[in-house]
Design a protein around this nucleic acid. Sequence first.
DNA 1: GCCCCTTTGTGAAAACATTCACCAGCGAGG
DNA 2: CCTCGCTGGTGAATGTTTTCACAAAGGGGC
Lengths: 213, 213
Amino acid sequence: MSRISESTVRRLSHYYRVLDEVASEGKRMISSHLLAEREGITSAQVRKDLSYFGSFGRRGLGYNVEHLRTEIRGILGLDRRWRVALVGAGHIGSALLAYRGFVEQGFDVVAVYDSDPARIGTTVDGLVVQSVAELAGTQGYDIGVIATPLRSAQEVADALVAAGVRGILNFAPRKLKIPAGLALRTVDMTMEFESLSFALSKPGGPRRRRGRE
Amino acid sequence: MSRISESTVRRLSHYYRVLDEVASEGKRMISSHLLAEREGITSAQVRKDLSYFGSFGRRGLGYNVEHLRTEIRGILGLDRRWRVALVGAGHIGSALLAYRGFVEQGFDVVAVYDSDPARIGTTVDGLVVQSVAELAGTQGYDIGVIATPLRSAQEVADALVAAGVRGILNFAPRKLKIPAGLALRTVDMTMEFESLSFALSKPGGPRRRRGRE
DNA sequence: GCCCCTTTGTGAAAACATTCACCAGCGAGG
DNA sequence: CCTCGCTGGTGAATGTTTTCACAAAGGGGC
């Protein structure tokens, strides 16, 4: 098995969610064609994506919904729980805490940090907000989420690295520098707005492209 | 000029932000090499991206920071203002409203809708929250933002389409069906978490890939 | 067992994106 | 005015991702 592309991983997430849906509809089997239809991609793409990890289907029948769901769960690493440290208890941070979907997928926010003295000591969603200064000495988190203003993002990233996280999810619109070997994902809403703006500005109006829609 | 890839547009956003930075540092010129360095990509990529839109640099000198900034502004459609309707005044919706960066880039949230009777009529960030029912008859928005729970996302998308928006930014973790010719971008935080989870689960730990980091 | 319809898995081809490599233009220094 | 060191623009080469197309199963009917 060679290197898996980011696009494939994103699609696996999609498949996983579609499988949840069809499972709750009571379907037992699903074809690559149907999986693709819900996603707006080709059935060949679905089969190719899955083939990187094994042969999960049965010719003539399709994929067993429950079985494929379990397989993808394992592939995505959702068959275990992840300890998440959240830095930044502002709007975005609160939104993440409030969204129960993450807990269901195995992401447990076990600590919340902030630099605002007014927020430190308060309770958010059952967790006491700690000072970021205390982050340095801590250990035991798998993933750090940065939901702070832009200006402190790099500093917080460094602190998270020092605290031994292996992956960072960054909501600040800046490319962070972190050591090689650690995983970094950035969610940049500004960029999404700009991408929309570009699409709407183009002469002849928006055109659909492939890629992450 | 052929079709511009989504990756190129994303990088333009990045360049734009880097240009802001170097402008505030007082630099007048910047080379593709320096632009690339801050981005973690190659200088050839920078030049190629820009060459899709014209020749903005001067050989031997590099790019004039202010000039390139203005050009990219135009390319991304940030030299005008966009009227944005926000649906969903929950955590994410409030976070968007609170973030002044969008206004600076030309995105004016001119209306807020919600379906929760408890929220309708209240004021958020200077805007009175209206009932989603009122959305149907309205016109005049360029972009609709969906920050509602998953279950109502498609319904809201339909209402936004009926209200004549040309682009939709969706924060619900589901692929929405909208008519061809409209632009859609989805920000799926669940997917980012799962992508991290995948990276951390891989034998040998996380490996960096190109693409949107 | 045999035919027919369906659907997977997968090499090969096509499309797409990135990087290379080099020419052309620029200013500086003498 | 010539040369040198830089730097942008760009066709060609390379690398990656997606799509095509088809052989290999599978089940049902008879």
